[in-house]
Simulated assay, not measured.
Amino acid sequence: MFLGHFGAALAAKPLQPRVSLGTLFLAAQLADLLWPTLLLLGVERVQIVPGLLAASPFNFEYYPFSHSLLAQVLLGLALGVGYGLLRRNWRGALLVGLLVPSHWLLDLLMHRPDLPLALGTSPKLGLGLWHYLVPTLLLELSTLAAGLWVYVRRTRPRTPAGRYGLWVLAALLVLSYLSAELGPTPASVPALAWGGQALWLFVALGYWVDAKREAVVV
């Protein structure tokens, strides 16, 4: 899943308005933010197999440090505690910590059984929605749309940048997703990994957009 993680972060914003959208993006997408670097370092492995699944050409051979449930729970604990110590907002820290393993739960819907539960030898799970392109596209787009709806209802722009920047961010997310899903398969694993570093741009945009908006009191 890609857009769905951002949708979850957007929908979580009203639960703790003091937590920046950028931090929520960071938490919800931490697994995919770490994975490209781990690929480049040779710590984790993937094969690119065109046609493997209708909505994904990736054979995930080994990625327990970024995508196992245990690793994401531990990463969530670390990120949540770090946020709590830095911001002195422990309710926000709980939300940040829980968003990290939400990534595994959402990915469970999409992946074939290749998501490990733990490090080392471990059972692997996955419900396999990536076998079907149209349902995958509908779920991704609708989840992002739902998150945007919640975020727009519970925040308001303080500046024109806050109004239009949000829709630029949403458009970039959709274009990035559709170009990856419907465009050419990555030429190599290093090309995939370097391209994956662009995810950090969306985290930065999340901080920027959220700073231009304010919570709506209901």
Rank of each mutant, 00 (worst) to 15 (best):
H5Y: 05
A9L: 00
L10H: 04
A12V: 02
P14D: 01
P14C: 09
R18C: 11
R18M: 10
V19H: 04
T23F: 02
A27V: 02
A28R: 00
A28W: 02
A31Y: 06
D32A: 06
P36C: 07
L38K: 03
G42Y: 04
I48F: 01
P50C: 12
G51Q: 08
S56P: 11
F65H: 11
S68K: 04
V73Y: 05
G76N: 03
L79A: 00
L79N: 02
L86A: 13
N89V: 07
G92V: 00
S102N: 00
L105E: 00
L106K: 07
M110Q: 06
P113R: 01
D114H: 09
L115N: 07
A118T: 14
A118L: 13
L119W: 15
T121A: 15
K124A: 13
L125Q: 13
L125M: 15
G128P: 06
L129I: 04
W130H: 06
W130N: 10
H131Q: 15
Y132H: 13
L133F: 03
L137Y: 11
L141A: 14
L141T: 12
S142E: 00
A146Y: 12
G147P: 04
W149H: 00
V152L: 11
R153S: 08
R153G: 03
R156C: 03
P157D: 06
P157V: 05
T159L: 09
A161Y: 13
Y164S: 01
L166D: 09
L166G: 02
L172T: 11
L172H: 13
L172C: 14
L178F: 06
S179Y: 14
S179E: 15
L182C: 11
L182Y: 11
P186G: 08
P186Q: 10
V189P: 08
A191S: 08
L192Y: 07
A198R: 14
W200Y: 10
V203L: 09
L205R: 03
W208S: 13
V209S: 00
R213D: 00
E214A: 12
E214S: 11
V217Q: 15
